[in-house]
């Protein structure tokens, strides 16, 4: 059976040029294209849905207001992901400070489940996420970002190098280091029976 012909997508470069001229439609198209990538990266870096959405919002504002800084050498997607990564790391630092301040008040900024229609599924995923987050916390922010781009978005070494503006060799060594550390620090006992 033949596939239905897909409509031709406007290239990012053209959308970026229009977005620079404050074209709302172009901006929204770029948002629609990359919002999920941005959200997934932010979520994996912060482990919290609402924080991830806040980071995506802040990153999008930075990206659209700062389009004059975008030289177009890497694609818009990679540029946006770099902003998301940096914003998430800043956010994470602010959250640590906030958490420290809140300890005395008895409040907590720990991750909460969200978006789950099925509470049982949410709970199970929350347990698994806690195990994974604990292991991810052993990674430095840079290594964690590299690994998230690799594991979550499936970016190639070259694409990650573009996104983070680092040599491919550094990407490879960071991913190796991340894997080793994660495997060492995962609580395999708790993960027994995970299908």
């Amino acid at each position: 059976m033949l596939d239905a012909p897909s409509s031709v997508q406007t290239p990012d470069e053209i959308l970026v040029r229009r977005a620079r001229e404050r074209d709302a439609v172009a901006r929204e198209e770029l948002f629609q294209r990359y919002r999920e990538d941005a959200y997934r990266v932010a979520y994996r870096l912060l482990g919290h849905e609402q924080d991830a959405l806040d980071v995506v919002q802040e990153a999008l504002i930075k990206a659209f207001l700062g389009l004059g800084d975008f030289d177009g050498r890497s694609g818009f997607r990679y540029w946006l992901l770099r902003i998301v990564g940096n914003t998430a790391l800043d956010w994470g630092r602010r959250r640590i400070r906030r958490t420290i301040l809140n300890i005395g008040n008895g409040r907590s900024d720990l991750p909460e489940p969200a978006f789950h229609d099925d509470p049982a599924r949410g709970l199970h995923q929350q347990d698994l996420r806690r195990v994974l987050d604990k292991a991810l916390d052993h990674l430095s922010p840079k290594i964690r970002t590299t690994f998230v781009l690799f594991a979550e978005l499936g970016l190639s070494y070259k694409e990650i190098a573009e996104t983070q503006d680092i040599p491919i060799g550094t990407v490879m060594s960071r991913i190796n280091a991340a894997r080793e550390k994660l495997q060492q620090n995962l609580d395999w006992e708790k993960l027994k029976g995970l299908e």
């Binding site: 997934r40 979520y43 849905e49 195990v131 894997r179 994660l182 395999w188 995970l194």
Partner: peptide, 19 residues
Amino acid sequence: EHAAGFSRLWDATRPLDPP
């Protein structure tokens, strides 16, 4: 074996798309 387990864990904790 651990690498495969890790991949399963990663997949099981993928975020749902926000509403």
